[in-house]
């Protein structure tokens, strides 16, 4: 049995190296960030700034499609004056689509998270699988499904449920298209937050509350709120800016703000008005995002 010797020695100096090495570490971090963030700086931030400057430009007298630097705030008044119906429609359509998507997505996300068992991985693949097929063609396919002589329209017409006797080329088709297109963006964040919930909590709530729905309302739904919020943002934002569904499925009178931006930029070449419209949309989104960050911080964003 060896001897255990109590050791007493003068204290050594505390290591002073740590601050130097942490500086070196953060330099590595900046080097790693540089290319990607630089790219985003040049091709995301600067364009947004350019968008803002362009939105204030004034036309050059006598030369159509040519503009010069100015401070023409009236562009915003004009953009809103001319296109407020498009803004209103965009938010209504996107809002309706988001609510519909939430209602449709929740049961599926819930099922995958708690009941799918060994089918879980497969079902998740199926949720993202539509992304493998062309967005435009999938949207266009709704023209076939909702066609005036098609089964769905005929059936609903027989019940006199359609105000315009048709779905295609109405705002209903636009909202349905938006709902369909952005549904996976609702399902995935919902699933992500539901999956974190301990299934035993649900059993426990089954014990506590007589009716399953009460248990759901008091336990599961509150815990899934981060997913609801994320899914709502991820559905609403792209839907509000979309112009494909309005163009392919709606009537000319269903145009949305995205349509207005596209037409002004690419057809009328009225860059200041187009930029003003785009910037208003961006500003609106920024308000939403910053409200969210004030509540939840940035760490869970990405």
């Amino acid at each position: 049995m060896p001897a255990i010797v109590p050791t007493t020695t003068a204290k050594t100096d505390a290591p002073a190296a740590s601050s130097g090495s942490s500086q070196r570490r953060s330099r590595t971090a900046y080097l790693l960030l540089l290319p990607g963030l630089g790219w985003l700086g040049v091709f995301f931030v600067i364009p947004i700034a350019t968008l803002f400057f362009t939105s204030l430009q004034a036309p050059v007298e006598g030369r159509s499609g040519v503009y010069q630097a100015a401070f023409q705030i009236s562009n915003y008044a004009q953009a809103l004056g001319d296109y407020w119906p498009q803004f209103v429609r965009s938010f209504i359509y996107a809002g309706l689509a988001t609510v519909l998507a939430l209602v449709i997505a929740y049961p599926l996300a819930y099922f995958i998270a708690f009941k799918a068992g060994r089918w879980r991985a497969l079902m998740l693949v199926l949720v993202v699988a539509p992304f493998f097929a062309s967005f435009l063609l999938r949207t266009y396919a709704w023209r076939t499904i909702l066609a005036d002589e098609g089964a769905i329209t005929t059936a609903l017409n027989a019940l006199h449920l359609l105000p315009e006797d048709r779905i295609l080329n109405t705002s209903i088709a636009v909202v349905l298209g938006l709902t369909y297109n952005f549904l996976p963006f609702m399902i995935l964040p919902l699933y992500a937050s539901l999956e974190k919930i301990d299934p035993r909590l649900i059993e426990a709530s089954g014990d506590l509350y007589a009716r399953p729905f009460t248990g759901f309302r008091k336990v599961v739904f509150p815990l899934s709120l981060p997913g609801v919020v994320a899914g709502t943002l991820l559905t609403f934002i792209p839907a509000a800016g979309d112009f494909i569904n309005a163009r392919l499925l709606g009537a000319p009178g269903d145009s949305m703000v995205g349509t207005a931006i596209q037409v002004n930029f690419l057809q009328f070449r009225d860059y200041p008005i187009a930029s003003a419209l785009s910037f208003i949309l961006m500003a609106f989104i920024l308000v939403v995002v910053f409200t969210y960050i004030r509540r939840a911080g940035t760490e869970d964003l990405v």
Binding site: P2, I4, P6, T7, T8, T9
Partner: peptide
């Protein structure tokens, strides 16, 4: 903390 752990223990 100060202690010695002898070789082989």
């Amino acid at each position: 903390l100060s202690l010695t752990i002898p070789a082989g223990s």
